[in-house]
Amino acid sequence: MYTSLNRRAANAYTQVGVHSVVEGASPHQLIVLLFDSLNSALNAAKGAMLREEVVEKGLHIGKAVRILEEGLKAAVDVQQGGELAQNLIAIYDYSITQLTLANLRNDVALLQAAQDAVEPVASGWREIANVSAVTGA
């Protein structure tokens, strides 16, 4: 009982911390947070897959797909972004397909393919954040 109370308190504290970070984040920082969450979900899915934890694997892959679809892909401005926006959409769609197949086939290589596809984009966003922090932009 005591452990459960501590766990609930820790979870509540974590949620407040996450909420505070999100509330104070710029749109750019929110995208970086989405990429970080995506990476965490993909790593957790790989671990669950290797441990043969089917339910956990599905939950983490589902979270990754939601981040890609509802977060990253939804944030792309196709009207303003032109070819770059179309390329981002293609990368996100490819990754969603790889994740769906990875879940169905229980294939770590497909999970890795999705992670490899989005990592250059994530690195670019992180680099922009670093440059902005240095220049004050």
Rank of each mutant, 00 (worst) to 15 (best):
H28C: 06
H28F: 07
H28I: 06
Q29R: 13
L30Q: 01
I31T: 14
I31K: 11
I31V: 15
I31Y: 04
I31C: 05
V32P: 01
V32H: 05
L33R: 05
L34Y: 09
D36Y: 02
D36Q: 11
L38N: 04
L38P: 01
N39E: 14
N39C: 03
N39Y: 08
S40P: 00
A41G: 05
A41C: 09
L42Y: 11
L42W: 11
N43F: 07
N43T: 10
A44P: 01
A44E: 13
A44N: 14
A44L: 13
A44C: 09
A44H: 12
A45F: 08
A45L: 09
K46P: 00
K46L: 12
A48P: 00
A48E: 01
M49V: 13
M49K: 13
L50Q: 15
L50M: 14
L50I: 14
L50T: 14
E52S: 14
E53H: 10
E53Y: 07
V54E: 12
V55S: 13
V55W: 04
V55P: 00
V55N: 09
E56P: 03
E56W: 08
K57Q: 15
K57S: 11
G58W: 06
G58Y: 07
G58A: 08
G58Q: 11
L59M: 13
L59W: 03
I61A: 00
I61E: 00
G62L: 02
G62V: 02
A64V: 08
A64W: 06
V65H: 04
V65R: 13
E69R: 14
E69I: 02
E69W: 01
E69H: 10
G71A: 08
G71R: 10
A74S: 11
A74E: 15
A75M: 03
A75I: 03
V76H: 07
V76T: 08
V76S: 05
V78N: 00
V78R: 13
Q79M: 09
Q80F: 06
Q80N: 12
G81E: 04
G81I: 10
G81R: 09
E83N: 07
E83F: 04
E83L: 11
L84Q: 12
Q86V: 09
Q86I: 08
Q86K: 13
N87W: 03
N87H: 12
L88Y: 11
L88N: 03
L88E: 01
A90W: 10
A90R: 15
A90E: 10
Y92C: 04
Y92L: 05
Y92W: 05
Y92V: 04
